[in-house]
Nucleic acid binder design. Structure first.
Lengths: 106, 106
DNA sequence: CCGATCGTTTGATACTCGTCAAACAATATG
DNA sequence: CATATTGTTTGACGAGTATCAAACGATCGG
């Protein structure tokens, strides 16, 4: 099957409380740090520094991030490529993502 | 008894994940909006626009905010005065609080 | 076609959390 | 002192959640 974008909220529908709730979890905040490079990443726990977590657990966290509007997921063959919705988040909540990423470095 | 500051984490001990978790709730996010003026506020649900919530519920949310390092609470007589820890938060996570407050206005 | 790979879904379990109600403590007021 | 006010604490209950394990689906490679 060809590449396909998984369902995600429109930029205008991203809700701050859902974004904060999604990021108020240590695993998902760690995923944010990983995605901070703006590149696409697969879902494999190995390669994400999440070897201690079951793949289904990681899958669950990725769904939460996507449904909150934080990430975008593209399906391609066996793989799914996840990336931060930097532009969308910055359009909806200017400066918030930058402040979060800077805060992560502490 | 004289004024007394309730226990709260040191500025250096404020954790991002706890801040985000605390704010990932609609009631507490609403409290943040109320506290955004930087002034002191009492805990009475009336006067906070939270008439629909039991006073013990509001008390619970205030404890979460304080323990996360977001607010500071001063006890004076029968009243407790709660305010945002603007300076502490900005010292720990520069720009984050401003970005959050701007995001709230949407 | 067969087996391996990547990721999701479902079910089960334990834990956390938001809420209310009742009891309580401390303080102010008549 | 008696009563009202302000807010906390505790217990109970239902809802949500983080995790793993097992089964499943889709895809790629031989």
């Amino acid at each position: 099957m060809a590449d396909e974008l998984l369902p995600q909220p429109d930029t205008a529908d991203i809700e701050l409380v859902k974004v904060l709730h999604a990021l108020g979890d240590p695993v998902r905040l760690r995923l944010l740090a990983i995605y901070a490079d703006g590149a696409e990443h697969t879902c494999d726990p190995r390669g994400l520094g999440l070897e201690q977590l079951h793949k289904s657990t990681v899958s669950h966290h990725m769904r939460v991030l996507r449904e909150a509007g934080i990430t975008s997921t593209r399906s391609a063959g066996r793989n799914r490529f996840v990336r931060l919705r930097c532009d969308d988040l910055d359009a909806r909540f200017p400066g918030l993502l930058d402040a979060l990423l800077r805060s992560l470095e502490r």
